[in-house]
Design a protein around this nucleic acid. Structure first.
Length: 317
DNA sequence: CTAGGGGTAAAT
DNA sequence: ATTTACCCCTAG
């Protein structure tokens, strides 16, 4: 009732169950982040491409292209209320999307357009991050995911401080008033649950994924022999370790390219925010429900966008 | 290969 | 009882 405690604990348990029988593979925040980044880099629908990209294959190696597609669908639904599959409880308003760019940064000027159609190339907008809390009712953002996203985006070696995470989130979304406090609690909780690893005031994402899977071959065990009748726990740990190594290895070797990707992603997110803002504003015209909130959101979105114009990125030669 | 429909276990 | 979030199936 009070504040929702998003299924963290729940799917921690979930995770354990998965270890035994693997009925379902809950998507980790890591994977979600990778997926988002992938979509931004290659565009929605290029699932095979994303999957092949060595940048993301480390995290998504146990997902199939179809999985990516499905997950993206779900995530999109969370953002705009109705993705491709959802019963439209509200008036099915047509929304058009902001044209997205893949490689270069865009300086966004006027955002609000007339009701004229923009020819959009992609069926889906780049709806990325979760929405800020606009609706007092039950529109609650998954702060957990926001945190994960912040950490992955910041990509600070060794993890990010609470303040950095807070700044990141505050820049992009509208935190509630007592946001800092909630964040602290959440971080503590996440760390306690093994979702985050806290080292010297810094938080990094725990390599939650990585365990035995169904159809994909376990690449990591190839060489080593750990023959033991019951080694579930050990296996888990080892896989985890391997995953860490893999991730760190990747992170170290990517520099300029990564920077470019991050920059592109940031812009794309801003674009997505604007697209949503547009939609919100448009809705506000007819539905008086969240008129004020929508208005404020639109302003906020544009504000943050302006603030982050064109970071310099050293594109690879 | 991708988009969309459908099924279902699990959570609220 | 309803909603979520995965997963599978199949047409294009």
């Amino acid at each position: 009732m009070s504040l929702e405690e998003p299924d963290l604990f729940v799917w921690g348990v979930y995770l354990l169950i998965s270890l035994m029988g693997a009925p379902k593979q809950k998507w980790t925040a890591e994977e979600e982040a990778a997926l988002k980044a992938g979509v931004i880099k290659h565009g929605a629908g290029k699932w095979r491409t994303i999957l092949k990209d060595p940048e993301f294959s480390g995290v998504l190696y146990l997902r199939s292209n179809v999985d990516l597609k499905d997950k993206w669908r779900n995530m999109s639904v969370m953002v705009n209320g109705y993705g491709s599959r959802e019963k439209p409880k509200l008036a099915p308003k047509r929304v058009h999307h902001v044209h997205r760019q893949d490689e270069n940064l865009v300086s966004v000027g006027t955002v609000v357009q007339s009701d004229e159609d923009i020819p959009d190339a992609k069926p889906l907008p780049v709806s990325s991050a979760a929405l800020p809390v606009v609706n007092p009712k039950r529109t609650t953002v998954r702060l957990d995911n926001l945190i994960m996203e912040a950490i992955t985006s910041l990509k600070e070696p060794g993890g990010s401080h609470k303040t950095a995470i807070a700044s990141y989130i505050e820049e992009q979304y509208w935190p509630p008033n007592d946001f800092k406090r909630i964040l602290s609690a959440k971080l503590k909780y996440l760390a306690a649950n093994g979702k985050l690893i806290k080292v010297k005031r810094k938080y990094r994402i725990a390599p939650t994924s990585a365990f035995a899977e169904r159809r994909v071959s376990p690449l990591f065990f190839e060489g080593r022999q750990r023959i033991s009748p019951k080694i579930e726990r050990d296996d888990f740990n080892i896989l985890t370790m391997s995953q860490i190594d893999l991730d760190l290895g990747k992170m170290r070797t990517m520099t300029a390219e990564q920077a470019a990707e991050v920059a592109a992603r940031a812009v794309a997110e801003a674009e997505a925010a604007i697209a949503v803002a547009e939609e919100a504003a448009r809705e506000a015209e007819t539905a008086e429900a969240d008129a004020e909130a929508a208005q404020a959101f639109a302003e906020a979105a544009m504000k943050t966008l302006k603030g982050r114009t064109a970071p310099k990125m050293t594109v690879r030669a």
